[in-house]
């Protein structure tokens, strides 16, 4: 089992959100919104929304930074084009139905494999798996650090 620095996900998301122009900056989600997002995700996709995703939502309803997209759970306003559930329905329908799609960074997709219960980094072209993670928290810390470009101690 691996551990990540406490609060690291929130710190990256806050830094990324603050970098967006004020009119594009996603708002944090309150507890009721996150609970509603959990229910909707479970209903639409049959699986629990990972806790690490909820930690992102506490800071911002979606992330757009340096090619990274973490989809919002509420209405889809610029710079986003899909909500989390819409992106999953689209990608499961047309890309691979065995994954839950949790983030995209350039040509990389960060997914949960519903067959093997693994968190994976795959690529759009040919779907090769190029990284595996011990947990949702580890995957989010990895992808956020990768998009931010430097390690936060």
């Amino acid at each position: 089992m691996t551990t990540t620095t406490p609060g690291i996900i929130e710190r990256y998301v806050r830094l990324m959100t603050d970098r967006l122009p004020a009119d594009l900056r996603p708002k944090p989600c309150d507890t009721a919104t996150i609970e509603r997002a959990r229910r909707e995700f479970r209903r639409a996709l049959g699986i629990e929304l990972p806790d690490a995703y909820c930690r992102v939502l506490v800071v911002a309803d979606g992330v757009d930074h340096n090619g990274l997209t973490i989809w919002p759970v509420q209405q889809c306003n610029p710079p986003f084009r899909q909500t989390l559930v819409e992106a999953n329905i689209d990608l499961r329908d047309s890309f691979d139905e065995n994954y839950l799609y949790l983030a995209q960074l350039d040509e990389e997709l960060y997914v949960y494999d519903t067959r093997t219960h693994e968190y994976l980094a795959i690529e759009f072209v040919g779907k090769p798996v190029w990284a595996k993670f011990a947990s949702d928290e580890e995957m989010f810390a990895f992808l956020l650090e990768r998009a931010w470009g430097e390690h936060l101690a």
Binding site: L20, P21, L24, D64, H65, N66, G67, T69, P78, P79, R81, Q104, L105, D106, E107, E123, V125, G126, P128, G149
Partner: peptide
């Protein structure tokens, strides 16, 4: 860093003979 709403695309995919060379990269709207 890429501007908001844009991503970096490999013209020839890394999975093939594509490389990280500058002339294999382009900034694309998401």
């Amino acid at each position: 860093k890429a501007p908001e709403g844009y991503q970096v695309h490999h013209r020839i995919p890394l999975d093939d003979g594509g490389t990280n060379a500058p002339d294999n990269l382009i900034l694309m709207r998401n």
